[in-house]
Computed example of a mutant assay.
Amino acid sequence: MALRKDLDGLRVQLPGNPAVYLVDAGRKRHIPDPATYNNLFRDWNGILQDIAINEIDTGTPISVGAVLAQGFGDPAVYLIDNGIKRHIGSPATMDRYNFAWDKIQHVAPILISSIETGPAIVWPE
């Protein structure tokens, strides 16, 4: 197994297997269900199926109900996942990860500030 930071932001799947993973910080992270997938991503297009995903280190699964969030009046967008917020570093990162701009939840800034901060998501690193 290996860290594959070169694949960060890509969604991968074994052919014939319904499980979809997001490569994040070099590790594949299982996306738990279609509802969570739809909270985060633009569409189901572009999922790579011809890659040896078993050779990629496994990371913490994405939590059920993970969302993209932004405080009113704050340009920063976060992935809220497993009880932490991770700043999405740029529009290029949003695009690389196929995150959906139109699915960002707009909330009171105090809600964002009350969530523990994790490492930023930045591409390229």
Rank of each mutant, 00 (worst) to 15 (best):
I53N: 06
V12P: 08
A66V: 05
T36N: 00
D95M: 11
L68K: 01
V77M: 04
F41H: 10
L22Y: 02
R29S: 02
A52V: 06
E55P: 00
E116D: 08
P18L: 01
G9F: 11
A25I: 00
D43Q: 10
G59L: 07
I51D: 08
N38I: 00
N45A: 13
A2N: 13
M94A: 04
M94N: 04
A100M: 06
V23G: 15
D33M: 08
R29Y: 02
L68T: 03
L79P: 05
R27D: 03
L3M: 14
N38Q: 15
W44L: 11
I110N: 07
V77Q: 07
F99S: 04
L111V: 11
T117E: 11
L48C: 05
R29Q: 10
L14K: 15
A66M: 12
R42Y: 00
V64L: 09
N38M: 11
I53Q: 10
P34H: 03
R96I: 02
A76W: 00
K103V: 01
L3R: 15
G73C: 03
V64C: 00
M94P: 03
V20F: 06
G9K: 13
E116R: 12
G26K: 09
E116V: 12
P32W: 14
P32S: 15
I56D: 13
I115G: 13
N82V: 09
P109W: 04
G71M: 03
L68H: 04
T93C: 02
D24N: 05
Q13S: 03
P91Q: 14
G46N: 15
M1D: 09
T58H: 00
P75Q: 02
M1N: 06
P61D: 13
G89H: 09
R4I: 14
F41L: 07
V67P: 08
H30V: 02
Y37R: 01
A100E: 06
G118K: 06
Y78K: 02
E116Y: 02
E125N: 11
I47H: 06
R96P: 05
I53S: 04
H106W: 06
I88K: 13
I121L: 15
D8L: 01
G89A: 15
P61Y: 01
P109R: 14
R96L: 06
D24P: 00
K103M: 02
Q105G: 04
I56Y: 14
V64G: 00
A2E: 15
N82K: 14
